[in-house]
Design a binder for these strands. Structure first.
Length: 905
DNA sequence: TTTTTAACTTAGCATATGCTGG
DNA sequence: CCAGCATATGCTAAGTTAAAAA
C-alpha cells in the first residue's frame, strides 16, 4: 500500500468552478424534451428493417438499411481471408456467448419480461429509498454538469463548485431506507426483473429530482431543465443527469471520415442471446437465436416504454418491436472458430458448437512467426559536452545519453526523480571512474540538436522516399503481422518488441527516468501451437528463452518488464481479431445482464448503508460510489508505483463531507488523472462516510475493512460474474443508449451526429476520461475569436450599407478606404444572412472546442460503449456508421455490425 | 487469509496522417 | 500547394480480476 498520501494537493490548482462552464455554455441547447424519437425515427426504422433481414454478412447488413453501413466488401488486402474468418467466428462466438449467459442466468434468475411491470413498481418503491437520492445529486449539480456529478473537472479546470453551490437540494432522502421488499439483511437481491423496472425507477427518480434540478440555480449550466425530462429515463437511475447539450457542432469533424475499406464487412452472424432467455438452460444454438431475439425485444420494449412514460407514449415501441421481430438474419457464416471456454469447435458450419470443449481452452491451432526486434543501435558519434568539453562515449554509453538528450524538451527535465533515476542507471554503464560524474555538468545539446536535424531531414524527405521506406518496413514486418488461429488468419496487435528507452511513468512515478533495457530473444517466451513450427529467432546466434504450447491463454509471446521484472509484457492479437471481439462482446453482455439486477442491487446496498456491520456498510457505500460515480475498484499499490487510488483505496483526505449531504472528491486516479467532483448523496451515505473518517488521519484508508477482492466477492453473490468494473461499462452504455434515444429528434445528419457526440461526451465526463489541452489551444481560440470579430465587423458594414442602400445612397468606403461595389438591398440582405449564419456556426464550434478541450471522447467509444447501441442507432436514423466509427473501430466492432435496428442495450 | 503471479483490459500521450480552407 | 489542425494509430503504462501460492 501506498504509504503516504501526498497526492493531490499538489498539482493542479484547479479551480473548481471553471469547468462547469463548459457544459453550460451551452447555449442553444435544446432540451431534449419532447418526445424522444419520434416520428421520423420510427418511420425510418421501418424502412430500414426490411433490408436488414438479409443474411449474409456484412453487406447484407449494410445494405439493408438505408443506413448504409458501409461495408464494403472488403477489401482489405490481406484481409480477405480475415474477413471471412470473422464472420464465421462470430457465429460461433455468439453461440458460445449464449451458452454462457444462459448458465449465468440460471444462477441468478432474473427474469425478464413480463413481470417487470409489477416488479417495477415495487422496485421503484424500493429504489426510492436508495436511488432517488442518487438522482438528486445530479440535481444539484444539475446545473452544471449534470451528470454524475460533475466529474468533469479535474485537472485544469475549475468549476464544479458552482453547481454545488447551487445545490440546495437535499433531496430526497426520504426514503432511504427502506425498500420494502428486499430482503432485509442480506444483500442478495432477488431476482431481477427486467427492464421495466428501470423505467419505474427512473420515473420516480425523475420526479423527485426535478424539483431539485430546478433548484440548481445558479448559473451555470443552464440546461438543467433537461434533467427533468431525462430524468425519466434511466439516467436517473444512475444518478446522472445530463445537462448541457448543446451545440451541435457542425459536422466538421465527422464528415471527414472517408471510410474506406472496412474490413469488417461481414459478419453477420449470430445473434446472441441475451439474457432474457436466461431461464433456459439450453444452450443449443438455434434455439438461442430465437431466444435472443425475444430477449432483445423485451429489452427494447420496455425501454421504449420507459421513455415514453415520461413523455409520450408509445408508438415507437411498437415500431421497434416489429422490426425486431422480423429481422432474423444472421446466421450463416460458417466457419468455425473456436472459442472460448467452451470449445472450439472447429468448423461446423452451422455453427454449432458444442458445449464441449474444454475449459478455458482458447484455441486449437496457433501458428505465428514470433516477434520482431528493433534494429541495433547505430552510433551517431556526436559528442556531448561535460564541463564544456567534448566527451568520448562508447556506443552503449552514447545510446543512453541519446535517450536522455532526446527528452531535453520534455517536462521530465523538471522532475528530479527522472534525472536521478536516469543518472543512476547511466552511471552503471559509464562505469565508476568515468569522467562524467554529475548530471548537472552534462550538456546534451549537441546530441539534442543532431536529433532535431535528423527529424527535420526525415520530414523533408519527400513523399516518394517516405513511401519507399514505409513499404520496405512493411515488407519486413509483414510476416509478423498475422497469425493463423484455428486456421483463420488474424492480425497481431503488438508484434514489435519494445525498444530500449527511458521509462516514462505517468504522474509522480518513482521509477521515471530509469533505463528500460533492450529486450533480447533470450528474454522472450513464445506460445505457439504444438504442431506449429517454432518461429526462427530473428537475431543470429541467439535463441528464445522458452517455447510453450498453452492453449488456455491468448498471448503469443511475453517477456518480463525490464522496469518491473515481476510484471510481463505480452504480445496479443489485435483488437480486430475474433478472439478479442468475442471477449469484448461478452463484456457487454455481462453489462447488459447487470441491467436486470441493478435495481435489486441498488436496493440492497441502499439498505446496507445503515447496516450495523461496518464491513457491510463499507461494501454498501463503496458499491454505491462505484455505481453512481463510475469509480474504479481501486487495488492496493506498491510504493514503487505512482500514488493513485480507486474506490477501495480512497483515503480519508480524498473525500470531504460538506453538510448537509455533499461529498467533495479530490484524488488522483488511474494514470494520475485527477478526479474532482462534488456530489450530493443520500443522507445515510453522507453519515456513513463521516463515520468512516472519524478517528483517522487524512492518509488513512477511508474503507479500512475493504479491498477489491472482498468487494468483488460480494458483488459476485449479487450477480454471476459481477465485478466492480462492470458498473462502468453498464453505466456508460446505458447512458449512451438512453441519451441517444431520448435526444435524437429529427434534424439533418449533422445534427444527429451532434446528438451522438453529446451523448459520448456525457459518458466521457462520467468516466472522467481526460486529455491534456493541446499546446496550441489558446492560440487557436484567439484565432477563432479574431475571425469572429472580423465577421462581425463585416456584418455591421453590411447593415450600414443596407440602410443606406434603402435610401438610395451608395455604400461607405471599406476599411481600406476603397469604394465597394454598390449592391442592391436584396444582395445585402443575403450577405447579412450568410454572415450571420457563419458567425453562429463559428461560435458554436468555438464553444464545442472549449468544451471538449479536456474531454477525451475516444476512450469510452473504444472501451465502454456497446457498439451495437451505436450501430442500431445509425441504422434507425440513417446515419452512416462511418460518421461515428473510424476504420479501426469498424474493424474492432465487426461483431456488432449486424445488430437489428431495434437493439437496445 | 493474504500475497503473489498471471493474463487481459483500459488509458493517455506522441506521432503519423490526412483534410480543408485560403 | 500549404499551413494549420483534427484524426487516426502506435505505443506502452496502468489498471482489474482470477487463480495460485504462501
Amino acid at each position: 500500500m501506498s504509504s503516504e498520501v501526498r497526492s493531490h494537493s499538489s498539482q493542479n490548482s484547479i479551480s473548481q468552478k471553471g469547468k462547469p462552464v463548459m457544459s453550460s455554455k451551452a447555449s442553444p441547447v435544446k432540451s431534449p424534451i419532447g418526445s424522444p424519437q419520434a416520428s421520423t425515427s420510427s418511420a425510418k426504422l421501418s424502412a430500414v428493417k426490411s433490408p436488414l433481414a438479409s443474411p449474409k454478412a456484412s453487406t447484407s447488413s449494410s445494405k439493408a438499411s438505408p443506413v448504409k453501413l458501409p461495408v464494403p466488401n472488403s477489401k482489405m488486402s490481406t484481409s480477405a481471408a480475415g474477413q471471412l474468418k470473422h464472420l464465421s467466428q462470430q457465429n460461433t462466438t455468439s453461440a458460445i456467448i449464449k451458452e454462457e449467459k444462459q448458465s449465468i442466468n440460471s444462477a441468478a434468475e432474473p427474469h425478464c419480461d413480463s413481470d417487470d411491470s409489477e416488479d417495477d413498481k415495487p422496485l421503484s418503491a424500493r429504489l426510492f429509498a436508495g436511488l432517488p437520492k442518487g438522482n438528486s445529486n445530479h440535481a444539484n449539480k444539475g446545473p452544471s454538469t449534470s451528470s454524475p456529478g460533475s466529474p468533469m473537472l479535474q485537472k485544469p479546470k475549475v468549476k464544479s463548485e458552482d453547481s454545488d453551490a447551487g445545490l440546495p437540494k437535499g433531496n430526497s432522502n426520504h426514503a432511504n431506507k427502506g425498500p420494502s421488499t428486499s430482503s432485509p439483511g442480506s444483500p442478495m437481491l432477488q431476482k431481477p426483473k427486467v427492464k421495466s423496472e428501470d423505467s419505474d425507477d427512473e420515473i420516480p427518480l425523475s420526479s423527485k429530482f426535478q424539483v431539485k434540478s430546478n433548484a440548481g440555480p445558479s448559473t451555470n449550466k443552464s440546461h438543467e431543465f433537461n434533467d427533468n425530462k431525462p430524468m425519466a429515463s434511466k439516467l436517473q437511475q444512475n444518478g446522472y443527469t445530463m445537462k448541457d447539450n448543446q451545440l451541435k457542432k457542425s459536422s466538421t469533424v465527422l464528415n471527414k471520415r472517408p471510410l474506406g475499406e472496412v474490413k469488417s464487412s461481414s459478419h453477420s452472424s449470430f445473434k446472441k442471446p441475451k439474457i432474457g432467455d436466461g431461464s433456459l438452460p439450453i444452450t443449443g444454438k438455434q434455439v438461442s437465436v430465437k431466444a435472443e431475439k425475444e430477449a432483445d425485444d423485451y429489452d427494447h420494449v420496455p425501454i421504449s416504454e420507459r421513455l415514453k412514460k415520461p413523455i409520450s407514449s408509445g408508438n415507437k415501441s411498437l415500431a421497434t418491436k416489429q422490426k425486431a421481430t422480423k429481422v432474423v438474419s444472421s446466421s450463416f457464416k460458417k466457419s468455425s472458430k473456436n472459442k472460448k471456454q467452451v470449445k472450439k469447435s472447429m468448423y461446423s458450419k452451422s455453427s454449432k458448437m458444442l458445449p464441449s470443449s474444454g475449459e478455458g481452452q482458447k484455441w486449437t491451432t496457433l501458428v505465428h512467426n514470433g516477434v520482431i526486434f528493433p534494429p541495433p543501435y547505430k552510433p551517431h558519434g556526436v559528442k556531448m559536452l561535460y564541463k564544456g568539453k567534448p566527451v568520448d562515449l562508447t556506443p552503449e554509453q552514447e545510446e543512453v545519453a541519446t535517450m536522455y538528450a532526446v527528452m531535453l524538451d520534455t517536462d521530465y527535465m523538471n522532475k528530479p526523480t527522472f534525472k536521478e533515476n536516469f543518472m543512476n542507471d547511466w552511471r552503471k554503464i559509464l562505469g565508476k571512474n568515468h569522467v562524467i560524474q554529475k548530471l548537472e555538468d552534462c550538456d546534451f545539446t549537441p546530441i539534442y540538436e543532431w536529433h532535431q536535424r535528423e527529424k527535420e531531414k526525415k520530414k523533408q524527405m519527400s513523399s516518394e522516399e517516405k513511401k519507399a521506406l514505409r513499404e520496405e518496413k512493411l515488407k519486413q514486418e509483414e510476416k509478423y503481422m498475422w497469425v493463423s488461429l484455428d486456421g483463420v488468419k488474424e492480425k497481431v496487435g503488438n508484434f514489435r518488441v519494445e525498444p530500449p528507452g527511458l521509462f516514462r511513468g505517468r504522474g509522480e512515478h518513482p521509477k521515471m527516468g530509469k533505463l528500460k533495457k533492450r529486450i533480447r530473444p533470450s528474454d522472450i517466451t513464445i506460445n505457439i501451437g504444438k504442431d506449429a513450427p517454432i518461429p526462427e529467432c530473428p537475431i543470429a546466434g541467439e535463441s528464445w528463452k522458452e517455447i510453450r504450447h498453452d492453449n488456455t491463454v491468448t498471448w503469443l509471446a511475453f517477456w518480463n518488464d525490464p522496469i518491473n521484472p515481476k510484471e510481463f509484457k505480452y504480445v496479443f492479437l489485435a483488437a480486430s481479431s475474433s478472439l478479442k471481439g468475442q471477449s469484448d462482446k461478452e463484456k457487454y453482455e455481462k453489462a447488459r445482464l447487470l441491467k436486470d439486477y441493478i435495481q435489486g442491487i441498488r436496493t440492497a446496498y441502499t439498505k446496507d448503508f445503515t447496516n450495523k456491520d461496518i464491513t457491510r456498510r463499507q461494501i454498501a457505500v463503496a458499491t454505491y460510489l462505484i455505481d453512481k460515480l463510475a469509480l474504479r475498484a481501486g487495488n492496493e499499490k506498491d510504493d514503487d508505483e505512482a500514488d493513485t487510488v480507486g474506490c477501495c483505496t480512497l483515503k480519508v483526505e480524498n473525500v470531504e463531507p460538506v453538510p448537509p449531504n455533499i461529498l467533495k472528491f479530490d484524488f488522483l486516479g488511474k494514470d494520475s488523472i485527477r478526479y474532482q467532483n462534488e456530489v450530493e448523496v443520500e443522507l445515510p451515505v453522507f453519515k456513513a462516510i463521516q463515520q468512516f473518517r472519524t478517528g483517522k488521519k487524512g492518509s488513512d484508508d477511508l474503507f479500512d475493512k475493504l479491498d477489491t477482492s472482498k468487494l468483488n466477492a460480494h458483488l459476485k453473490e449479487l450477480m454471476p460474474g459481477l465485478t466492480a468494473k462492470v458498473f462502468r461499462t453498464y453505466n456508460a452504455s446505458i447512458t449512451l443508449d438512453d441519451m441517444l434515444n431520448r435526444e435524437t429528434k429529427g434534424g439533418d445528419l449533422a445534427e444527429k451526429v451532434v446528438v451522438y457526440q453529446h451523448a459520448n461526451k456525457e459518458v466521457a465526463i462520467i468516466c472522467n476520461h481526460q486529455r491534456t489541452v493541446s499546446k496550441s489551444h489558446s492560440a487557436q481560440m484567439s484565432r477563432l475569436n479574431e475571425k469572429i470579430d472580423e465577421l462581425k465587423g463585416m456584418l455591421d458594414e453590411f447593415k450600414t450599407d443596407l440602410a443606406r442602400a434603402k435610401k438610395g445612397k451608395p455604400p461607405l468606403k471599406g476599411a481600406d478606404g476603397k469604394p465597394k461595389k454598390n449592391l442592391n438591398p436584396e444582395a445585402l440582405e443575403r450577405k447579412i444572412a450568410q454572415t450571420t449564419a457563419k458567425i453562429e456556426k463559428m461560435e458554436r464550434d468555438k464553444e464545442t472546442k472549449e468544451d471538449l478541450k479536456t474531454v477525451a471522447l475516444g476512450t469510452s467509444k473504444i472501451n465502454y460503449l456497446d457498439p451495437r447501441i451505436t450501430v442500431a442507432w445509425c441504422k434507425r436514423h440513417e446515419v452512416p456508421i462511418e460518421k461515428i466509427f473510424n476504420k479501426s473501430l469498424l474493424a474492432k466492432f465487426t461483431w456488432a455490425m449486424d445488430v437489428e435496428p431495434s437493439y437496445r442495450f
